[in-house]
């Protein structure tokens, strides 16, 4: 119970921290925040109304309090461009980004882990060289270039998948593959090195000295240990993937949260920008915390700590 309270306190502190960052963003921009929130061409009365609504003439602490209470009630302000509540816009767009990140994670685990294991087991053989080279290629390729190449080959030339939009599974394939590329490469490299480390440990020597078959030594004793850091990185990288969906959505014209954020910045739609930054931050923190909390179930050493 004490554990739970502690974790919740930590989570709330983190959320306060990111909400403060999101809160500060429009206030750090030179100029009158009320005008920024109302839109540059808004009439004076609207600016005045917004000023009182958000308390822009109050001290910063009061402003933050107003921001927090409103945000907790689901009020993140009114999008200048879309002319509707920011919250509504976010709720419409968020599922698309999450769907993309989840699909990309699944792809990268399904390809990266087996490839990394194979690479470690056949060290300096052909498969290791291929895997090592393609993974360094994978982390070096800009994802928008990769996305455009896939789009050119598979939808424009071969016509296998639609080039843009969202809704059906076929429209998810190319964006998820592109987004998963970097992550796949990373997981391949990581699995390879943790597997090599695990195979070099004293307890593997013990397992061999016990007369266990190589299969049991590798897949039971080494893999279970090697996979722990991979699990952490996969979890933490969901945040990275959600962030990178900003670019993928721009490439494939998927209207997710990322493209909304970029557009909001370009259109100077500050309420919307602030709201989407907050939404991103909250989702990422929740995912990271969840991975953290699940760790004791995966690694017995952490249990009860």
């Amino acid at each position: 119970m004490l554990q739970f309270t502690k974790k919740m306190t930590e989570l709330i502190l983190l959320l306060l921290c990111v909400s403060f960052i999101a809160f500060m963003v429009p206030r750090l921009i030179p100029g009158d925040p009320a005008r920024l929130f109302a839109g540059l061409d808004a009439p004076a009365e609207v600016v005045a109304a917004i000023r009182t609504e958000w308390g822009f003439d109050q001290p910063l602490v009061v402003q933050y309090w107003t921001f927090l209470t409103k945000a907790l009630q689901g009020d993140l302000g009114f999008s200048i461009h879309f002319k509707q509540p920011v919250m509504q816009e976010i709720l419409i767009r968020l599922p698309s980004s999450i769907e993309l990140a989840v699909a990309a994670t699944a792809i990268s685990v399904l390809i990266g882990v087996p490839l990394g294991i194979a690479s470690a087991l056949h060290r300096r053989k052909l498969i290791d060289k291929v895997a090592t080279f393609s993974s360094i290629l994978g982390i070096s390729t800009p994802i928008f270039v990769a996305g455009l190449c896939l789009m050119y080959i598979f939808s424009m030339r071969l016509g296998w998948f639609p080039a843009s939009g969202r809704g059906s599974l076929s429209k998810l394939v190319l964006p998820a593959l592109t987004l998963g590329l970097y992550n796949t490469a990373l997981i391949t490299r990581l699995t390879r090195s943790t597997m090599l480390d695990a195979l070099n440990t004293d307890y593997i020597r013990t397992a061999r000295a016990k007369g266990l078959s190589e299969r049991v030594v590798i897949y039971k004793h080494a893999l279970r240990n090697a996979i722990l850091p991979v699990y952490t990185i996969v979890g933490l990288n969901i945040g990275y993937l959600i962030g990178s969906s900003v670019i993928i959505e721009a490439v494939f014209g998927r209207g997710g949260l990322g493209s909304v954020l970029v557009d909001a910045v370009k259109w100077r739609d500050y309420p919307l920008a602030q709201g989407s930054i907050l939404a991103f931050a909250i989702v990422i923190i929740l995912v990271n915390r969840f991975v953290d909390w699940s760790y004791p179930f995966v690694d017995p050493r952490i249990k009860g700590n």
Binding site: Y203, T206, A209, L212, L228, R301
Partner: peptide
């Protein structure tokens, strides 16, 4: 290889210097 495995841990067993790292931490 499979015959030496029949001997390891069965007819000839071994213990090591580092008890702290010689056991698999996750089992």
């Amino acid at each position: 290889d499979d015959e030496i495995r029949q001997i390891r841990g069965n007819k000839i067993a071994m213990i090591f210097q580092e008890p702290m790292t010689s056991l698999n931490p996750v089992y």
